[in-house]
Design a binder for these strands. Structure first.
Length: 245
RNA sequence: UCUAUGUCU
């Protein structure tokens, strides 16, 4: 079943839900019994293919076959609904998991937070963040990155940088997503000196930029109309031995 | 072997 599970989860990229479904059927025909991971993987493929209804059907089939949903099942399903903007349904699932004795974790809350952010519902997003703290669930770097994105999209740069400072206070470390998000936000707003500030801070922290980050830097400076800086980043990229794409 | 955050993707 490991083999089939791996192939099915491979279908997430590319939204290959029909392929995943046929591997799933083939697996059963070959006499293998789907396990928890098989169902979770298939459910996730449907979610990533933006087919929350079918993801829900996988949950039902899973239960009909005697497997109780795990926290992974719920988080994946919540992500499927949130991705489609179905936040009320996502919240209902979070409540349902609690009723069934599964405590929402940092994945659950970060998914909901980001879902509300994408829907433009900042108040609700902040409520999720508070609920998370009240529940004693510690935010991790992904949570902070989602908050940075939220404040960045709203032009609340002071708040955004406050979250950036919180990262260290909470014993987390800024990662590639953090740096790319900050650079992109300042780039989108034409704030070239802030882009430079983030760039300096990034180097100071010892972060080694890879292709994504160089691309983000070049894009950020381009949006600021800073052609020379963009070219300088392109040169740094080549000097660092990173291949452009 | 399965779940959350970013860069135009």
């Amino acid at each position: 079943a490991y083999t089939y599970n791996t192939i099915i989860s491979c279908c997430r990229r590319g939204s290959l839900y029909e392929e995943a479904k046929s591997i799933f059927e083939e697996m059963k025909l070959a006499g293998y019994v789907p396990d928890k991971v098989t169902y979770n993987a298939l459910l996730d493929v449907y979610g990533k293919s933006r087919r929350p209804k079918e993801a829900m059907e996988v949950l039902m089939e899973m239960e009909a076959n005697g497997f109780s949903p795990s926290i992974v099942t719920y988080n994946s399903l919540i992500s499927a609904y949130a991705r489609d903007g179905l936040l009320e349904e996502a919240i209902r699932l979070k409540d349902q998991m609690l009723e069934r004795g599964i405590k929402p974790d940092v994945f659950t809350y970060t998914t909901l937070l980001s879902g509300y952010e994408k829907a433009g519902k900042d108040e609700s997003a902040m409520r999720v963040f508070e609920e998370m703290r009240d529940a004693g669930c510690k935010p991790n770097i992904c949570t902070f990155n989602a908050l940075i994105k939220m404040y960045g999209n709203r032009g609340k740069f002071t708040e955004m940088m406050k979250i950036f400072d919180d990262i260290k206070e909470c014993g987390c470390t800024a990662d590639v997503v953090t740096w790319n998000t900050l650079l992109a936000v300042f780039g989108q707003n034409g704030m070239d000196s802030e882009v430079y500030g983030v760039f300096k801070e990034m180097r100071r922290s010892g972060f080694v930029a890879e292709r994504d980050t160089f691309n983000t830097l070049i894009s950020a400076y381009s949006r600021c109309g800073s052609f020379d800086q963009a070219m300088a980043m392109y040169k740094s990229m080549l000097d660092a031995g990173v291949a452009p794409d």
